[in-house]
Design a protein around this nucleic acid. Sequence first.
RNA 1: GUGCCCGUAGCUCAAUUGGAUAGAGCAUCUGACUACGAAUCAGAAGGUUGGGAGUUCGACUCUCUCCGGGCACGCCA
Length: 570
Amino acid sequence: MLYHDSLKTKLYKILEKITSKQKVELSTLDNIDFSIDNSPKKEFGDLSTNIAMVGCKFLKISPIELAEKIVIDLKHENQIKKVEIVKPGFINIFFYNSFWHDQLYEYLNIKRNFNYNVESKKICLEYVSANPTGLMHIGHARGAVLGDTLSSILKEVGHEVTDEYYINDAGEQINKLLDTINFYLKNKCNFDVKTPDSLYPGDYLKEIAKIFFNQSLKQTKLNEQVIKKILGDIKDDLKTLKVNHKNFISEKKLSSMQRVNNLKKKLIDMKLAYYGFQETPKNIQDEKWEKKEQFLFCSKKFGDDSDRALIKPNGNLTYFMSDIIYHQNKVERNFDVLINIWGVDHFGYVKRLKNAIKAINKKEVNIQIKLTAMVNLLKNNTKMKMSKRAGTYITMREVLKEVGTDAIRYTMISRNADKKIDFDLDVFLHKNKDNPVFYIQYAHARCSSIIKIAKEKFGDEFVSNLKNVTNLTELQIYEEKQIIKQVCSFYNVIKSSAQSFEPHRISNFLFELAKTFHSYWALGNIDESKRILIEDDLIVSKSRIHLIVAVKSIIKKGLDLLKIDCPENM
RNA sequence: GUGCCCGUAGCUCAAUUGGAUAGAGCAUCUGACUACGAAUCAGAAGGUUGGGAGUUCGACUCUCUCCGGGCACGCCA
């Protein structure tokens, strides 16, 4: 077991022992959540824990007093050199170097197969779900990459994830799309005729129209083919982004007459919906607006300002209705958790959908909606203007062409989802530290390079054959210990990243590791004795090259999770 | 008007979910290469975490309030 878990178990047992002596119910310990951190300062030892400060509330003694009790047992651990109690109640632990050698040895043995000790869940992860009315833009890319990366991370820790794309192939937007295509076809693809404001402008759909110009398909067949073509283009883009959904669920197919009627009946029976009139929406200035009877969901019951439409006056479904149908379908498929990734502009729907699903189902449905903030594109330090309405938006395709998959993937996940991204395209044209992807990849390439040299100098066995921990005992420099700590804490970063749905923790970790690595490497430029390979000192060289092997494998694992290229040389 | 999100160094972002003296990169200044890959490294400087109040051993993090920015509030998705 790597240190984070093993130490946590150990501390928990000590606390249990103390608790049992204190005549306090052992079950109170279930609520205890203490942390074990890498000490922020050298003077604070290797690791520190807040267990005494968290635990004292349950045991009703002062933190220092509790810390003293804990330390009595901790001191007897044979690899612990020293334990200190500081101010409010921190416990700082100092280990002998041998402890870190054992840790590295353990990591090298388990390779990259961490034991996360996470209860496996069946998860439905829905993301992108852009309607097929045009190409993906950069905002879609954020959802796509976040979803896909989250999926790898959740799978990594042991969950069973189904990646889904909900195709909005019905509704007003699709009608508008088909109207646009029909308009072009009617004009025999003469694009000098001005596109009416009510239709989608933009060159992309003109190209689509050209494809179908000479095919003279029947209307229904044409509609089908147009959507298929656009969806195909979206799928191609996703593929280039390395995003692979398992299921593509069609709204049109899912929202069958039977399902609609069943849901309608159910909602009426449950007194959750009715036919009536909606109040005039607050942001509607249209004077022509008139009240019409429609089928409404009782959103007011759940704190909404107004009841919301499920079926429009003309009998068509609203997005809300078809979304309920889709989510009920997910519920029927017995997932433990439903995760949706939506653009922040949909946030108004979060509460509404959650309430609806909660109200309809008797059982608890765990539905989590992660919102992604906006993405701005920057070039030459200026924001690039985008307007979907005017058809002048920049497609993801164009961005991909300019900076490549790795840059997009890294940028999209390296920031917390709730913060807006200013995506500076120029950064990724740099091949230096300005470009974080490059910096991490370069660290990996350097590792590969020196491992190759080690093999040439000392033979393959030298690197591949690590018999026992004694081959690591020459790792005595402070920086080496820091690297081992980082290496051995990666599984914990992955775990917390999966728990909080925050992949940026992984990219940040990799950047930090690359930094410590480059820094360690440079020590050899100043001091010959700190070079990784030393001709006449095989023992030191062997220790150090295995540290490098570990770093390389961690970077590889991290970049694999993010699906970013990990070159051996560059 | 109502609701939600954001506000951290000049710029772009972190902060192990309430922990110790708030950390990185860029930009600025200074230094290190006939190289285990200098596409790198070391150092300096840079802060009242938007303002104010509260909660407690302890607040960037939680509560309240104000300010600024963004996004929503549809019979679009």
